[in-house]
Simulated scan of single mutants.
Amino acid sequence: MLTDAQLLAAAARFGTPLYVYDAAELDAALARVRTAFTDTRLFYAMKANPNLTLLARMRAAGVGFECVSAGELARAVKVGAGGSDILVNGPAKSDEEYAEGARLGATFIVDRAEEVGLLPPRSRVLVRVNPALEVSTHDHLATGAGGSKFGVPLGGVPAVLNALRAAGHDGRGLHVHIGSAIRDATDFAAAFARLSELRPAVGELEVLDVGGGWSLDADLDGIADQARRAAQVFGAQLWAEPGRYLVAGAGVLLSQVVGLKATAHEFVLLDAGMTELIRPMLYGAVHPVLPLWPRSEAALHNTGTYDLAGPACESGDVLAREVPLPRPQRGDVLALLEAGAYGAAMSSNYLTRPRPAEVLWDGEWRVIRQRESVETIWAAET
């Protein structure tokens, strides 16, 4: 992890708010996944962070891409991916996405029976299964729940596979992704067990794709072992789609203290908020907070508990609540950790706020996305 001094130097040099990534931690996360998921094809879930520099690193390391839009497909092509290195996922694919996926020779992940008639001729396909499980994450992240919009219900999977093959498609196997930031490894075991129930009806398969969704402190070895057992049931090759796990811990959002305010709560007002990190507001995500101001003995005795509020005129624009901190002053900098996934990727120009720069530490600082200006925001307006 980058040191306090390095983070402060980045804030001073590039300004705040600022997304900072540590190349060593990116490499370490991928190494952890590969150690656990041996003999597994990996496809990075690009939605977690689509920065081209990060994608190029993934591609150079032999990782493929899971894409859920035409824009993400274009990014995959930009960094040299194609064919069997690309998965096309999503519950509502457009005609453009079907056409581009076919042109590239990508593998489609079918999300509903209707897609059998929408696919380009002779497509390579996996069927996404909804195992109807309640899992240990926020409702907005529970993609394998029975009430979610994702996947084919378990009982309908054999018919969809048969229909795909009858239509001339290459129905290669099954796909399951039960959610994101899953805390309990037994949730994955339950999902894989539900999939295994399909073996008598679908026979042997070429591929079993077990998605991703592991929390940063997950028992990867245990999850991988369960996944391998499920793949063996079908005689299938194992695929996986890590997203947040590969990039979240490598990223930090730096923000400067604008001031303090006391109402019924003690607030630290920041120059970053929901436009830079919407996860806390969107689904209650908790990001560790690291104060970067001097923490002398005297300061540590003057610790308070604060809510960290952003600049938007929205009551929900709070990045963290009840955080114990040495009392800050205007101009102090703090770091919101585990922000490498769905930070920059979900940032917005709400309130005509320019999106922050992104910088990478790889022995030296590299700007991998320039800070926007208001002029770049309104350049396409007429």
Rank of each mutant, 00 (worst) to 15 (best):
D85T: 00
G117S: 10
N130R: 09
G64R: 06
A163Q: 11
L73P: 14
N49P: 12
A70P: 10
L42K: 11
T53Y: 01
V110L: 05
G151Y: 12
T40G: 13
V160K: 12
R41N: 03
E96C: 05
A48R: 08
L126E: 12
G171T: 08
V116L: 14
F65S: 06
G117M: 07
G171A: 15
P131R: 13
N89H: 02
S94V: 06
V63E: 07
G173H: 01
V135M: 08
P91W: 01
L42M: 12
Y98S: 02
T143Q: 07
V110M: 01
H138R: 10
D170C: 01
A48C: 11
S136I: 04
A45V: 14
A142V: 09
M46I: 12
G83H: 09
V160W: 11
V152N: 03
T137S: 00
E72N: 04
N51W: 05
L52Q: 08
P153L: 14
A185R: 15
I182C: 06
A70S: 12
V110G: 03
L133H: 10
R41K: 07
G147D: 15
V157C: 04
A60P: 03
P131F: 11
A81S: 05
S84Q: 10
V127N: 09
A45D: 14
G151P: 15
G151F: 11
R103F: 11
L118P: 06
G64C: 08
G90R: 01
E66Y: 08
G101S: 08
G147R: 15
H175K: 11
R165Q: 11
G117W: 05
Y44I: 13
T107H: 05
R183L: 08
K47V: 00
F150C: 03
R75Y: 09
E72V: 02
G147N: 15
V152A: 04
A60H: 03
N49G: 11
G101T: 07
G62P: 05
T40L: 13
L126I: 12
P153C: 14
V79S: 04
E97Q: 07
K93Q: 00
T137V: 00
G144R: 12
F65M: 11
R165I: 07
E100M: 14
A74W: 02
V176E: 09
L87A: 05
N51A: 10
P50G: 08
L55N: 06
D184A: 00
D187P: 07
A159C: 05
N51I: 10
N51Q: 10
G146H: 00
P158V: 01
L55V: 03
L119A: 09
I178G: 12
A145M: 13
R112I: 10
D111L: 10
D139Y: 12
Y44H: 14
E100T: 10
A76I: 00
L42V: 13
G151Q: 14
E72C: 04
A56T: 15
G168L: 06
A92Q: 04
V160H: 11
V68P: 01
G105T: 10
G117F: 06
Y44C: 15
Y98T: 01
S69E: 12
G173F: 01
G105M: 12
A74T: 04
A106E: 04
I182P: 09
L133I: 11
F150V: 02
T143R: 05
F150K: 02
G101K: 06
L87Q: 04
H138V: 10
V135H: 06
T53K: 03
V176F: 07
A99V: 07
F150W: 08
K149I: 15
T137W: 00
G62K: 02
A185V: 15
T186P: 05
